[in-house]
Design a protein around this nucleic acid. Structure first.
Length: 393
DNA sequence: AACACGGGGAA
DNA sequence: TTCCCAGTGTT
């Protein structure tokens, strides 16, 4: 007798059964606290579970409630996010926490309009919060889900296209078993993370292998179809490691980035886009490079003397590849520093800060020692350079 | 629709 | 080393 199987019902039931048996014990799964779910989902965007776990734990320890997060200084939030990347996630999360306190009495809302109105919460995270925290039958389609569905249902649309995501959302919504939205959506993502992986998927241990269309057709490795992203454009930058003298002895100069754009409001070593790509074998004394940096710093009222090349470093963003050449400089103390002071110096953190307001670009400079590193959030590459410098002193 | 936005892990 | 991963906001 030929048995008629509904491949969708089979998929949902087998997947749920598998999840009940083999779900991971993750910190945000120990309670069904909507705040925990929300924070974890923001951290998990573009970021692996193993990377997120320690960040999540520190974050929740420091900000146990939405109110704690809303009331914290933004620098504290950025510092806890340091190294996790995509820092607008952190800034938006805090802005959204303030929205929740003001508009929803500090409780994560449970209706679609209110959730998706939160800063940093798009279609995926809206579905994740509503389904995982509140067990509402909303789809939560991330990359894992698109990979699983594209294979099981042999969907050959390019998953980079917006249209494909809406197709996937419609399908994912149909698959949710009655009353099991929370577990089912997590199961879908768990399968993508543990079994139906991008490369070398473990089809032989997959709970739904029997009716997986891609496996039956032998095209698992061709799916999902995904158009390639543009490679990052290269940029050569010169970086200044300025060692203080006089009252800044033992400190180095750092600068805070602008309020918007790349690495917004993070701290860094001063640097500039290279006028000329660094001459081949320029060696320790690349005069044009050091001259360019000295001129840029002088514009901000900081006078320096070049000492030589220190190290090279690289950093890749999704759209830019930085080739950094770091030069050491000494701070030149004297009348020039006095000029900076009359140009609007101020002191927000003790007596070692310099602000410049000449051209309204809000550059803020500061002299820090190794212990001060704990108070400022740096992008990874500057953390690496600074740590190396202070460790080798 | 196209681009901006970090960093880590696996091959 | 090189490749891969992929949500949200802005324009």
């Amino acid at each position: 007798m030929q048995e008629i199987i509904d491949s969708k019902a089979y998929f949902s039931m087998e997947l749920l059964d598998w999840y009940d048996r083999s779900k991971r014990d993750l910190p945000w799964r120990r309670y069904r606290d909507p705040y925990y779910i929300w924070v974890s989902e923001i951290m998990l965007q573009q970021t692996r579970v193993d990377t997120v776990i320690p960040y999540f734990q520190r974050f929740i320890e420091r900000f146990p409630s939405i109110t704690d997060l809303a009331e914290a200084p933004e620098e504290d939030v950025l510092k806890l996010w340091e190294g996790l990347g995509y820092y607008s996630r952190a800034r938006n999360l805090q802005a959204a926490a303030r929205q929740v306190v003001e508009r929803h009495g500090g409780v994560v809302p449970n209706d679609k309009e209110a959730v998706s109105a939160l800063k940093g919460v798009g279609p995926y995270t809206t579905g994740a919060i509503l389904s995982i925290a509140y067990n509402q039958p909303q789809p939560a389609v991330d990359g894992n889900v698109m990979r699983v569905l594209s294979r099981y249902f042999l969907i050959e649309e390019d998953i980079m296209k917006a249209k494909t995501r809406s197709i996937m959302e419609e399908l994912a919504a149909e698959l949710i078993p009655h009353g099991r939205a929370s577990d089912f959506n997590q199961a879908l993502m768990e399968l993508g993370a543990l079994v139906c992986t991008p490369k070398s998927p473990c089809c032989l241990t997959c709970p739904v292998m029997e009716y997986c269309a891609a496996r039956l057709e032998g095209v698992v490795d061709e799916l999902p179809v995904k158009s390639k992203a543009k490679p990052p454009r290269p940029e050569f930058r010169f970086v200044a490691l300025v060692e203080g003298s006089g009252r800044n002895e033992g400190r180095v100069l750092i600068r805070r980035r602008a309020d918007t754009g790349l690495l917004a409001r993070m701290w860094e070593l001063p640097h500039a886009l290279a006028d000329t790509s660094p001459s081949e074998g320029a060696g320790m004394l690349d005069a044009p490079a050091m001259e360019q940096l000295a001129v840029e710093l002088a514009k901000d009222g900081i006078s320096v003397t070049p000492e030589g090349a220190y190290m090279d470093a690289e950093h890749t963003f999704s759209h830019i590849h930085w080739n950094l050449r770091v030069f050491r400089f000494g701070e030149r103390v004297g009348r020039i520093a006095g000029v900076a002071e009359t140009n609007g110096a101020y002191s927000s953190r003790g007596d070692n800060s310099i602000g410049t307001s000449k051209n309204g670009d809000a550059s803020e400079y500061l002299w820090i020692n190794q212990e001060d590193m704990a108070s400022f959030a740096f992008p990874k590459v500057f953390l690496t350079i600074l740590n190396r410098y202070f460790e080798s002193k």
